[in-house]
Amino acid sequence: MYESNLGGAIVAYIIGFLGVQNVFLIGLSTAISKVFKFEKGLSATFKNSVVLINSGNFGLPVSQLVFQDNSLGLSIQIVVMIFQNLLTYTYGIFNSVTAQSKGFQALKIFFKNPVIYALLLGVFFRATSIKIPEFIWTPIENTSNAFLAFALITLGAQSAYIKFHQLSTPLVLTLIGTLVVAPSIAFVSIFILGLEGTVAQALFIASSFPTSRNSSLLTLEYGNHPEYAAQAVLLTTIFSMLTVTTVIYLSNILF
């Protein structure tokens, strides 16, 4: 957040699209959870697996490949990634916490998470143009660079114990919701907002990415079906080879 450069009318369109897209996904995943009567922990993990996407270590390389001669496309993906980070450490965490606790206890656990305060500090320092001293910034940056490695190692440790006897109902619904329904909702949202060109292409492609590894890490932290969460990350990533390719092809035809 501290290093980001956001501004301009185009950002307003992107945020508008992301707002519409995620409201639909949150509403849809909540409705599905109630229809299939998922218990609270499973419901929280299911909703996170559909709403939270891998816009960082998956989304950025894809955008760099697709928009290698178009800086606007990559810039849009960076905005999407920042939005997803905010969504993960607000909606995602609160969703996970309230599955195990209620009322004041849930709020207490939620506000114990240091990422909330890191985000607020990043926004504050950015808005006030306060320069962080080099001796403080260097270790922060080094720690940040190590996060991806630790996250993937953790996910790998979870995946090592995955046993696929059959595709469970929640897992099938996650695959459909993340890889099919989400891009479909994105197409409708783009049409409603009247977006076109590179902006429409970039947002349509960004909507097709697999489940975020962060959703799996949250289940480990709060004990909400971690094996199912790891399965969701693994399978959506595998099947996204087909769906993301299809969406990229369609984006060139439709927009």
Rank of each mutant, 00 (worst) to 15 (best):
G73M: 01
D69Y: 02
L72P: 02
L60F: 06
S75L: 05
N57F: 14
N85S: 14
Q77E: 09
S55W: 05
S75P: 00
V80M: 06
N70R: 01
V50T: 13
L86G: 14
T88A: 14
S75C: 00
L52A: 07
F58N: 04
N48W: 04
L72H: 02
Q68D: 11
S49V: 01
L52V: 12
V51M: 07
T88F: 11
F58R: 01
L86D: 09
S75M: 08
S63K: 00
N85C: 11
Q68H: 07
F58G: 01
I82H: 09
N70I: 03
N48D: 07
T90A: 15
L65T: 03
V62S: 03
I53M: 11
N70S: 08
S75N: 11
L86E: 08
I78P: 01
M81Y: 12
M81G: 00
G56R: 03
T45I: 09
I82V: 13
L87D: 14
T88H: 12
S75H: 06
N48G: 09
Y89F: 15
L86A: 14
I82A: 13
I53D: 02
T88C: 15
N70M: 02
L87V: 10
V80W: 04
D69I: 00
I76P: 08
S55Y: 08
S49N: 13
L60H: 02
V66N: 07
Q64S: 05
I78L: 13
S49T: 08
Q64W: 00
S55H: 06
V80H: 03
N57I: 07
T90M: 14
L65P: 00
N85W: 04
I76F: 01
V79H: 13
F67L: 07
P61H: 02
F46G: 11
Q77R: 02
Q64I: 10
G73F: 01
T88I: 15
D69E: 12
S55I: 05
V79S: 10
L65C: 00
F83T: 08
I78R: 05
F83H: 08
V62R: 03
Y89S: 14
S55Q: 12
I76T: 06
N54M: 06
Q84M: 15
L72F: 10
D69G: 03
V79Y: 12
Q77F: 12
N70P: 03
L86V: 15
S75Q: 13
V66P: 06
I76Q: 03
V80E: 04
I78D: 12
I53G: 10
S63L: 07
I53E: 04
L65D: 03
T88W: 06
L65F: 14
Q68G: 13
V66T: 06
L72C: 01
L87H: 13
G56L: 11
V66W: 01
F83N: 09
S55G: 08
L52E: 10
S71Q: 08
G59A: 04
S75V: 00
F67P: 08
A44G: 10
V62C: 06
N48Q: 13
V50Q: 09
S55F: 07
V51Y: 08
V50L: 14
L60R: 02
N54H: 01
G59Q: 05
